[in-house]
């Protein structure tokens, strides 16, 4: 019997440690596991941000279900001024259209966008395809396969939009992340992938086009989709900070100022340079408008590609 009592006491202890929380303490939710691409940017962002804000902060990784579990936790903390989320593009602008979630694009107070990287259309360097035109021609006979880091992710959506808006014939094969997809590309299981410059450089791939309005610095020979005679397609991997709805105007302003100061700091700049993340700051109002625009555009793509009714 004593054994049972000790165990119950231990259980009670766990409960007690969870309920204690200070007011000058900020929870930064990262909706991915520790060590992922988003987590690393968030962890470099966190110390500078909390110093500017004058609080003690903790990065909490709440992962699962395409980053929606952590995002939902932020949305569900309505009115709590001690929690923010460091969010990826997919969880804010794609997932709410794909499935029933406890949040939507209107469930947040938007603080700022931190970084944004345009996506490239790319093929393996070992393939003999040199241009988008050639890719389309060769796909007519036998459709290509394109990979993605999972269903409903940005690489998936960008390619789905491209196949809808051009004559390219290609089918989707999802993988559990960019790594396994790159393995498949190296083994010629898939032939096409849309992803950022980081992937392009790390895996030595050949870019054919860029999903952006203008050509990208450092890649002067890579045409935009519009230059190829296609509709405008703007896909970028971005990240930003959101807070729950119902926090005070004053607190929003504090967050926004701290965020701006953080992304403009030398420390964050030098990190972003190393991690090949392009700093692309947007303030609260611009960020909100941006997310709403992306949300609507992605919703249309999902519909056109037949991924949602």
């Amino acid at each position: 019997m004593t054994t049972l009592r000790y165990s119950l006491a231990a259980l009670a202890l766990i409960g007690a440690t969870h309920s204690a929380m200070a007011a000058d303490h900020l929870d930064i939710i990262v909706p991915f596991s520790a060590g992922g691409a988003t987590d690393i940017v968030a962890r470099s962002f966190e110390p500078i941000f909390s110093q500017r804000l004058g609080v003690t902060s903790v990065v909490r990784n709440v992962a699962g279900a395409s980053a929606t579990v952590g995002t939902a936790e932020v949305a569900n903390s309505e009115g709590n001024p001690n929690i923010i989320g460091y969010e990826p593009a997919g969880a804010l602008s794609i997932q709410p259209s794909l499935k029933k979630l406890p949040y939507g694009p209107d469930s947040f107070t938007y603080i700022c966008r931190t970084v944004s990287n345009p996506m490239f259309l790319m093929v393996s360097k070992s393939s003999d395809i040199e241009s988008f035109k050639q890719l389309v021609e060769e796909s007519q006979e036998y459709p290509f396969l394109y990979g993605s880091s999972g269903p409903g992710t940005l690489p998936h959506l960008a390619m789905a939009a491209l196949t809808v808006n051009s004559d390219l014939k290609a089918e989707h094969v999802p993988y559990s992340g960019s790594g396994p997809a790159m393995n498949a590309l190296a083994g010629n299981e898939i032939q096409i992938m849309a992803d950022t410059e980081t992937i392009l450089e790390n895996y030595d791939l050949r870019p054919l086009a860029v999903f952006a309005e203008n050509r990208v610095e450092g890649y002067p020979d890579v045409p935009t989709m519009q230059e190829l005679g296609l509709a405008e397609m703007d896909f970028a991997v971005w990240q930003g900070v959101v807070a729950p709805k119902g926090i005070s105007e004053e607190r929003t302003q504090q967050y926004a100022e701290a965020c701006k100061a953080t992304v403009e700091s030398d420390k964050f700049k030098s990190f972003a340079d190393k991690a090949k993340a392009d700093i692309a700051y947007l303030g609260p109002d611009d960020f909100k408008a941006f997310v709403q625009k992306r949300f609507a555009a992605n919703k249309q793509v999902l519909k056109d590609a037949g991924l949602t009714p």
Binding site: S33, A34, G35, G36, A37, D39, I40, R43, S44, G177, G179, T198, E201, N202, Y203, D204, F271, K274, A275, K276
Partner: peptide, 16 residues
């Protein structure tokens, strides 16, 4: 994957 993340922080990008 976590180790790769740690390398990126130190400016080493794993890749081919």
């Amino acid at each position: 994957a976590m180790m790769m993340g740690a390398m990126v922080i130190h400016g080493i990008t794993p890749g081919v």
